[in-house]
């Protein structure tokens, strides 16, 4: 569904992504793992059209057929069927929960079904339903993360990209979020999951890439990497 070939991202003199090639088959969960500063966000943001002047090729095979995403502005992604839940959640703090969700559906024109999808998100995250009229900025970190994932779902994406959904969450909440990721994948969505929490991510991923200072150093199925001694040593705490 998404094929990235030899992607380079540079910020002035900083070469953050140095020739990443990866592929995300339709219907799968693929995870991109790496330490702080490895270039994970840079890669995912390049796909979303948020960084200028990238090199390489990004091909998306979706509702419009095979198209290159390179050079497209971020606002075109949701229309192609790609949604990003950005690092740090980026909830609009002054808008209510339901307004944040409606904004997620901004590209759609089927008003009645948007209301259905809001109910669907509330069924995934009942805690958001109770807080429908609460301002996004007053939610707890975990609730904001749920809202960020729910908001990304509101565009009805075929590919959903999640940048560190477990960041700053207690273990119980991490489990909850990852179960939802499994569920939306089972419902047919392709998932690109960027994570530092390697253990949780590898457990649910079909395929995984490990990124170190801008380069992919290891790849394999989630199970393989979970038992790989190098991965164990570097990312799974021995």
């Amino acid at each position: 569904m998404l094929e990235i070939t030899d992607l380079h991202v540079r910020y002035g003199g900083i070469h953050a992504v140095k020739g990443v090639t990866l592929s995300i088959p339709k219907g799968s969960i693929v995870t991109l793992i790496g330490a702080n500063g490895a270039g994970k966000s840079s890669a995912i943001r390049a796909v979303a059209g948020l960084v200028k002047g990238i090199e390489g090729e990004i091909i998306f095979n979706g509702r419009d057929g095979r198209t290159s995403l390179k050079g497209l502005p971020p606002e075109s992604m949701v229309r192609k069927g790609i949604a990003l839940s950005p690092e740090g959640r980026r909830i609009l703090p002054h808008l209510t929960v339901i307004e944040n969700l409606r904004l997620g559906a901004y590209s759609r024109n089927d008003a009645e079904r948007i209301e259905d999808d809001i109910e669907y998100v509330y069924s995934l995250f009942p805690r958001l339903k109770e807080r429908s009229w609460q301002k996004g900025g007053t939610l707890s970190g975990g609730e904001q993360q749920m809202l960020a994932v729910g908001r990304a779902l509101m565009s009805r994406p075929d590919l959903i990209m999640l940048d560190e959904p477990s960041l700053g969450l207690a273990p119980l909440l991490v489990r909850e979020i990852f179960e939802i990721i499994l569920q939306i994948n089972a419902e047919g969505k392709t998932v690109l999951l960027v994570e530092q929490n390697a253990f949780a991510a590898l457990k649910i991923a079909h395929y995984a890439y490990i990124l170190e200072v801008g380069r992919i150093v290891l790849q394999g199925s989630g199970q393989e990497l979970l038992t790989n001694p190098k991965v164990k040593a570097a990312y799974l705490g021995g």
Partner: peptide, 24 residues
């Protein structure tokens, strides 16, 4: 209204609003 919602969103975070499909 929908454009009103987008206006309020842009005033806080242009990048995220674009990401959600708003033509700023």
């Amino acid at each position: 209204t929908k454009p009103g919602l987008a206006m309020r969103a842009i005033s806080k975070d242009i990048e995220t609003t674009r990401l959600l499909g708003v033509k700023v």
